[in-house]
């Protein structure tokens, strides 16, 4: 199987909130220099899913990433778990748009790469939390798609997958090629062995820009009006009630109000 895995480098989503600031224009969240830049969490699951499919059925895995700056070093490290090659579309204009722009750019890059059997994305990026790129990408490519896939196998040339639904999962069969967005339940990215790390260090990341044929302008469709950081409530809100029963009821309502239950 020839698989393309879309990966994104994001600032560490688990870094302390104090290390992030909204910029003066009120549009971007700027992390401090010390915040590590990592692979988006679900993208790692997508990569593991690809690796497992390749273990079973052979083929190649191509990493594809879109970024405005030179992230080749990170992409090369991402190769260390065993992907075969990496392509970076490096263009500030292409990368500077919203999820829809990204999907368009990735779609044109995938068309330039050529035929593939499967495109895997993480179900949502750790920074935007949008979950738009995967399905939108499928739409641009005219391919079937499924989102929040927690398991995918190839059986007799058909993709058989488990998709997470509200109270369980559904089993789907799709004819490849297709685009799937992966959720993490069964896919923990494997630990890279030295052999793979060394092999990856010998590989070159292929870099494309807007000037390369096939990559065209993209357009955004989301207008961000404002970005702000919510007030960090550091105090624990203690439920005030006379009896344990009342406290429990009050708590349940507070949780409902927060949209948690």
């Amino acid at each position: 199987m020839d698989i393309i895995v879309c990966v994104k480098r994001v600032p560490d989503p688990e870094a302390p909130a104090s290390l992030f600031r909204v910029d003066a224009a009120g549009q971007k969240l700027v992390p401090a220099r010390s915040v590590p830049r990592l692979t988006s969490t679900y993208d790692e699951s997508a990569l593991e899913a690809a690796l497992q499919l390749r273990d079973q059925h052979g083929g190649t895995i191509t990493l594809l990433s879109l970024a405005g700056e030179d992230v080749s070093e990170w992409l090369q490290e991402a190769l260390a778990t065993g992907a075969d090659e990496a392509i970076l579309v490096r263009d500030a204009d292409l990368a500077g748009g919203d999820s829809f722009a990204t999907a368009e750019a990735l779609a044109s890059a995938i068309r330039r790469i050529g035929a593939c059997d499967l495109v895997l994305c993480g179900r949502q990026a750790s920074d935007t939390d949008a979950g738009i790129v995967g399905p939108a990408l499928a739409e641009h490519l005219g391919l079937p798609s499924a989102s929040v896939v927690r398991k995918v196998e190839l059986q007799n040339g058909t993709l058989r997958l488990e998709r997470a639904i509200e109270d369980g999962y559904e089993v789907l069969e799709i004819q490849p090629p297709a685009v799937l967005t992966i959720t993490s339940e069964l896919y923990q990215l494997r630990y890279a062995t030295m052999a793979n790390i060394m092999a990856a260090s010998m590989k070159e990341v292929v870099v494309w820009t807007k000037a390369d044929p096939g990559l065209q302008e993209v357009s955004s469709r989301i207008r961000q009006r404002r970005l702000y950081q919510p007030q960090e409530r550091s105090e624990c809100e203690l439920v005030k009630a006379d009896t344990p029963h009342e406290a429990a009821v009050a708590l349940a309502q507070m949780l409902r109000a927060r949209g948690v239950i």
């Binding site: 560490d12 688990e14 590590p36 990592l38 494997r190 630990y191 890279a192 062995t193 030295m194 052999a195």
Partner: peptide, 19 residues
């Protein structure tokens, strides 16, 4: 050589690598 280590050690090691 084999990428084999206890799960919790792996979590700490990956964190060390990334963060």
């Amino acid at each position: 050589g084999q990428g084999k280590l206890p799960d919790s050690a792996q979590v700490a090691m990956l964190n060390l690598q990334k963060r």
